[in-house]
Structure formats: C-alpha cells, structure tokens
C-alpha cells in the first residue's frame, strides 16, 4: 500500500501501516543521533525533562552536512539505526511514535514498537542529496554544541520512506539475506 501521512503521528495512523508500505511524510519531525540519544538518556537518569516531548513524534536518525548559504540544509540521509537501539525502548515507552533510519533493529526495539503501537521506517541510505529536497525548514532546537549531532526540528514535505517494522512485529528485512 501507499500512504501520505502527516507528522506528528497519531497511533491510529501508525497502527494501520504495514511492513513494505510506501509512505510520504509531511509535517514536523526531529533529528537525533548517537550523541543526542546519550545526552537524553543521561538527562532522564538524573530525573530531568527532555528538550522535546516525544509523544506522537517521529525521530529521524540523521546528522546533516552543513548547508550552503541560502539553503535549508546540506545532504540529509539516514544513519544506521541500530546504534540507537540501547536508548530507543525508553523513548518509545514515553510516547515516541515513529523512527526513520536505515538498517536492522534489536529484538528489544521490535518488542517496544509492538507494545506501543509505533512504527519504524527506512529512508534510502546514501540518498542524502535527494532527501534534502524534501526538507523545507530546519532549526536546531537542542544540544547545539553537538554540531551535526544536535537535535533539529525539520519541516518535511512528501518525505519518502518504507515501513520496515510495524505494530504487529513484521520486519521487512527479515527475509532478505537468507539466500
């Protein structure tokens, strides 16, 4: 199936998506990768609030290249999601509704996706120039000192992704590579 959806996402929309569906996302999403996840984890451990309320939101695992003058953003494709696996279930349990990245997830993340009715999307790895065109606005909202690893708020339009893990626990990658 093909869908056009808006972000932030609601659980009803997330719940109808199935592994293999082709989806275009429009709306507001946030970037975070390794260093930002580590900081959020430390903040939670200290009992502090996070800089973004993740409820119903989508995190894009991405650290862009610098923008040229007059451009919104540089190259902006997904990074490998599995590095965020140790931090992810906790965020999903706090209401995070979707993630965009590339590559496999751990069984713990899959369980947390199912438990929370969330969804994991893949964007095409190495298509950062193409994907940057669908980003209309970008603004650093937290951890600016981390440079490319800062948390950015993005306005996207028809951002192309594929559903990899759905709330029923289907995993699109699982059967590829068995040959």
């Amino acid at each position: 199936m093909e869908y056009r959806i808006t972000a932030p996402l609601d659980k009803d929309t997330a719940g109808k998506l199935r592994a293999g569906d082709y989806v275009w996302i429009s709306g507001t999403i946030y970037t975070a990768r390794d260093a930002a996840h580590k900081r959020m984890q430390e903040a939670l451990d200290r009992g502090e609030r996070l800089p973004v309320d993740w409820k119903d939101n989508i995190i894009y695992y991405m650290g862009p290249s610098p923008a040229r003058e007059g451009r919104v953003i540089g190259s902006a494709g997904p990074t490998t999601s599995s590095r965020m696996d140790p931090y992810t279930p906790r965020l999903l349990d706090m209401g995070l509704c979707g993630m965009i990245g590339k590559g496999k997830r751990s069984p713990e993340v899959l369980d947390a996706i199912v438990r929370n009715g969330a969804v994991y999307f893949a964007a095409v790895g190495g298509a950062g120039a193409l994907l940057s065109r669908q980003i209309k606005k970008a603004e650093v909202v937290a951890y600016g000192d981390l440079g490319t690893e800062a948390i950015r708020k993005l306005e996207v339009e028809d951002f192309p992704v594929i559903v990899v893990i759905d709330k029923e626990g289907n995993d699109l990658y699982k059967n590829n590579g068995k040959g």
């Binding site: 040229r68 190259s75 950062g128 940057s132 065109r133």
Partner: peptide, 13 residues
C-alpha cells in the same frame, strides 16, 4: 542532484 546542486552525495562525507 548532488552534481547539479553541489551537495554531497551522502551526508556522511
């Protein structure tokens, strides 16, 4: 696009 717009092929340069 990368060539035309002078933007890196991939953000991980």
């Amino acid at each position: 696009i990368a060539k035309e717009e002078q933007i890196p092929i991939c953000q991980d340069t």
